[in-house]
Write a protein that binds this DNA or RNA. Structure first.
Lengths: 274, 274
DNA sequence: TGGCGGTCTCCCCCTGGGGGAGAGTCAAGC
DNA sequence: GCTTGACTCTCCCCCAGGGGGAGACCGCCA
């Protein structure tokens, strides 16, 4: 019988913490070679070291203690590890994929945030461009703009993870109405996503004049007026539906709202996407 | 003031469990619009729904509640989210990478296991081939083979995550010695890995006769004899060091040990790797 | 024999809730 | 108005994988 190691020394040898060693004993994964009955001191020998090292290696591979128990059981019987390890592999692969998906989603979010910051620092001038076609979950109703805080949450809750962009609102009449506007509440969907319990529609592309409005949504009036004046000056005919996209919503600081206003038009323009 | 939702209805609307809603209130993340002072019933309104939805979206992105708290605080002030989200992104990216590394390591392990199974089902015949050069952590000492259970764990513990293959043992004398053999205990290292506190050496490639021995390591004698007899029959001169690679170690079931025996030789062979 | 460092057990803490007990509440039907 | 069934309340224990620390022993060296 060789040298005996107390728990602290064993910890240094194996890289497992003292707490972990005690836990693994309690879980029946790694029993000390001897436990002094009077003092309760745990003593390990060289024979315990390979098992401890295996344990550490598996733990560092992110196996749960339960999975480790299974692997060790099969290992000590010389049985096949393939099935156990394949299960673990599947779990870890899913974990990695999930984290990776989150990273990608966060990147998208960060890009949108960065663009919003950019818009706040230097609001883009009035521009003309084609809005691309987009698949949306849509809820059409008569009502007022301030219903947004009621409608969008429902829509977002229904679409869940299929949401692929900032929500927007279509105004089907050009005249401003306080409380009986004909509105479509829209949420862009990821390609291929098919949420249930909601009407899905494909919006065609459309040529528009666009401006980004900075400030709370009650104050968009003058910005709309600029768009109408612009088209009028170019002898183009405004069309419907108007689109208000809520790029950034602030709850307390009124200054950092961002709304993209897009006014479609018909008339002299030949389609030209440059 | 619009409709009020009790906690169960709110749960259905937002997709957050009742338990979660209560927890988020306790953590100060989502306060119900009204709590009945006499009954303690929580009542939510439409105004609470967007926040709840944001909360759920962030949680589904794997943010911790603490991270969510930070994001919501900045969100409600319209402040920049970039820093917070970048931190979260870094954490998640590391998490994904770590899980991915584990998956790759498990794949390697599974391949080795599969090969070991293969060897157990159909032991490969005696083969001649070149062992490739390999970088190893090495500990040379006089002793006995059964010291393996003492020496390898130390070596593995020292090299930690740099280990890149099955450990093996070099025998620097061709004669069998019970308890005073001149041995090198070796652990292959990953390319570029530089573990501390251990001697690292590059072993040259060498031409060998190889056989895989199935059974406990005490029983390798006859297999070594086969290798020597094979070389003798071909009029080749056995050389040193002999290499015993421990492909698979079983603790209880003596039948599933696997040891690769490699005997280098010099003589008539021209180098030919075909 | 004293001292110092190591070790023991026991308890609470973290995350993000799940499960359930026992008691109180709301709304609808009769 | 009363009953009933569905909700909801608070409170407590549970999961993994340990970390931190309190108070009490233990082992070894001078």
């Amino acid at each position: 019988m060789g040298r005996m190691y107390a728990i602290g020394e064993m910890s240094r040898i194996t890289g497992l913490s003292v707490k972990a060693l005690r836990l693994y004993q309690e879980k029946g994964l790694l029993e000390p070679s001897r436990v002094d009955p009077s003092s309760g001191y745990r003593y390990y020998t060289e024979r315990d070291i390979p098992l401890a090292h295996t344990l550490r290696a598996l733990r560092d591979l992110r196996l749960s203690l339960e999975e480790i128990r299974g692997v060790l059981a099969e290992l000590s019987q010389g049985a096949s590890l393939a099935e156990q390890l394949a299960r673990v592999r599947a779990r870890l692969a899913e974990e990695a994929a999930s984290a990776q998906r989150s990273v990608l989603a966060l990147d998208t979010l960060l890009r949108h945030q960065a663009q919003a910051e950019e818009y706040l620092r230097a609001p883009p001038p009035l521009l003309e461009h084609w809005l691309p076609p987009v698949r949306v979950a849509v809820h059409r109703a008569r009502g007022r703009y301030s219903d947004a805080s009621e409608v969008f949450p429902r829509l977002l809750a229904t679409c869940g993870p299929h949401v692929a962009g900032a929500p927007f609102c279509l105004l089907h009449e050009a005249e401003y109405r306080e409380d009986d506007a004909d509105l479509s509440w829209c949420v862009p969907l990821a390609p291929g996503a098919t949420p249930e319990g909601v009407h899905v529609e494909e919006l065609p592309e459309v040529q528009t004049a666009v401006i980004v409005h900075s400030g709370p949504p009650e104050s968009v009036g003058p910005s709309w007026a600029r768009l109408f004046a612009h088209l009028h000056a170019k002898e183009r005919t405004p069309s419907i539906p108007l689109r208000e996209t809520y790029l950034r919503v602030a709850t307390k600081d009124g200054a950092s709202w961002l709304t993209e206003l897009a006014l479609p038009w018909v008339g002299s323009g030949l389609r030209n996407r440059t």
